[in-house]
Amino acid sequence: MMKALVRFKKGILDENPIFSQAIALCPVLAVTTSIVNGIGLGLATLAVLMASSLVVCFIRKWIPPQVRIPCFIVISATFTTVVRLLMEAFFPALNEALGIFIPLIVVNCLILARMESFASRNGPLTVAFDSLGMGLGFTLSLSLIGFVREMMGFGTVFGVVVIPEVIPRNTLMILPPGGFLVLALLIVGFRFIRKRGA
């Protein structure tokens, strides 16, 4: 149990997928133009990550090591399809906004990395907490980037105007370079605070 909780905390802080490991950056930079997009993609990824990690964990004894990557992909593709169909049915607008990046969760390298290096070697409880921590770390990072970019680029938070209209919007933040800049500066901030705390 103790180990499981440690994994949970590590996923959010020490081994945060975005701010520490800097993996799965492509969808991060592409969709985080608003906080809703960030939360949406983050939770979708969390669901796929958790379900596929647990399946990998349960059947790990029967996966032949030579073909483990194709097996992992098939498993994550199954759950991605489920998530995509659910989103299409219940959140059509969000699904539209995230576009290709929902199907692309299949090859999200955060999910593959957790299956390869963690789920295939540990027990179900630890794996559950590990994927929950990693998924939440991913979701929180995406929401934070989306929050900054949406506020500076559109002047809104969750679509509500918070910065008066007289201040011109910083369109750079909505463009891809703005995504890189915000991500880099947040990594600086994250490391700075972690170093202070240590």
């Binding site: 011109p168 910083n170 369109t171 750079l172 933040m173 463009l175 370079p177």
Partner: peptide
């Protein structure tokens, strides 16, 4: 960067 951020002015 100013150009990308505030093209209109």
């Amino acid at each position: 960067i100013i150009m990308a951020a505030y093209a209109l002015p």
